[in-house]
Design a protein around this nucleic acid. Structure first.
Lengths: 237, 237
DNA sequence: TAGGATTATTGACAAATTGTCATTATGGGC
DNA sequence: GCCCATAATGACAATTTGTCAATAATCCTA
């Protein structure tokens, strides 16, 4: 629930990591999606070399998954596009699915950064909702076609245990934290199940984003409408 | 918009086909997802024979896609599970993706039937929302693991043109019709963008259903909470 | 900086999978 | 029963996946 006692709706939801999971994903050892040890800082030498291969593979994978979709993207296509040897792919990923999960995770991490930067100092329910919508729209504009993959339900592709939570789940739980904080400051109705609401919101944004993109909605109208609906659902009646 | 002039909220949304698309899906000729000519009535002889093969393949595909997911299900597994020759798979489907789309479509059609049976004579916003939630919960209970596939965003798997609308899109548009009717009878706020709201609702139900299943939510509580949120978002303020 | 140790890359290869098609089987019509 | 049309089959070729011994790059130490 998170103890928070500010009396008005300011600075409520900032700094809540929404999507970040601080993990890479390689297959060197361990189960699918358990991630390799690609540390964030710029490494040197041997490690630097491996990172560079991985970076090229990830960029190629993103390009092809977005352009052709999962079905029509082959591991060999990814290595060729990346300009590395075929075997290198399997050095970094267990198989195509592992690579896809890594791609989705990377995208989710990027989206989280955009969300963070938008949430600074936003306090009221409407401000928070609007900023998150702005952030997703902004991310989609800069990274066309990536959002849908980033928030895909991997369980349809694979029934195993991903080893960590799916991006959509992490995002939903981030929303739960935000809504709890907003509830504490009287911006969200106390009888709302914030956990469930978090999941519903994420699902709605996924589907709504796909629709807005497909039908070329005016993005300001889109943001206004979604904000309107979310605020009405959540506010104190 | 559909002209409807009853003065109170009864018999509003019944008979609106929500998910049905009245199409099969085979590959005999035509593009992916364009569907074969498997007529509904019980055919005789040669045609009957072909239908029976298809039925066995579809049943096997459903079982394996649900149990193992898309990635770990191979066309050869499906033919073996179905007890037909390997070549028969390719007689009925272009490839694995075509088969998956057929499966998702079949599931969407079934869900639509459940929705239809639940919507008879439900008139108020809350009644409609509650019944749809009941229908999805009921369908998920009878067909564990199928809903997520039925409503999957195929565009992540494949970037081509599916030739007809995806189940989730059809369902969203069904919601739009229902909401328009409810708007006409004063149950839904006139300033709601019903088309967008339809998409948001479908997305929310997808994600919420996955969450409810994964965390074994009490289904009555789940239905109550979702209904509460949807009604608050849509009702006249 | 030579040289040996360590880590990463590579592409040839074996294994597995996909997709085709000539052949065989089944049902319908006469 | 015979012939025609349609469907099923599985052996086969083509493609793709995944492995691994050989090679290359970097690091470390004297």
């Amino acid at each position: 629930m998170m103890t928070e006692d500010s009396d008005s709706g300011t600075e409520t939801a900032a700094q809540t990591a929404v999507l970040d999971s601080t993990e890479g994903s390689a297959t060197d050892a361990g189960a699918r999606g358990e991630g390799g040890d690609v540390s964030e800082g710029a490494a040197r030498g041997v490690s630097r070399r491996k990172q560079e291969s991985r970076r090229k593979l990830m960029a190629a994978a993103r390009k092809l998954f977005v352009e052709r979709g999962y079905h029509d993207t082959r591991p060999q296509d990814i290595s060729r596009e990346a300009g590395v040897g075929h075997g290198t792919f399997y050095l970094h990923f267990e198989d195509k699915l592992d690579c896809f999960i890594a791609f989705a995770d990377e995208a989710a991490k990027e989206l989280d950064e955009v969300l963070q930067s938008h949430l600074q100092g936003k306090g009221t329910l409407e401000e928070v909702v609007r900023e998150v919508m702005l952030a997703t729209v902004e991310y989609s504009a800069v990274n066309p076609g990536v959002l849908a993959s980033a928030l895909t339900d991997v369980s349809v592709l694979w029934k195993g245990d991903v080893g960590r939570k799916a991006p959509a789940t992490r995002w939903a739980e981030g929303w739960t934290l935000i809504l709890d904080q907003l509830k504490d400051v009287g911006q969200v109705s106390p009888d709302i199940d914030t956990r469930l609401a978090g999941y519903l919101i994420v699902g709605a944004i996924k589907q709504g984003g796909a629709y807005a993109q497909r039908d070329h909605l005016d993005l300001h109208v889109y943001i206004d409408s979604v904000t309107q609906l979310f605020v009405r659902a959540l506010k104190i009646q």
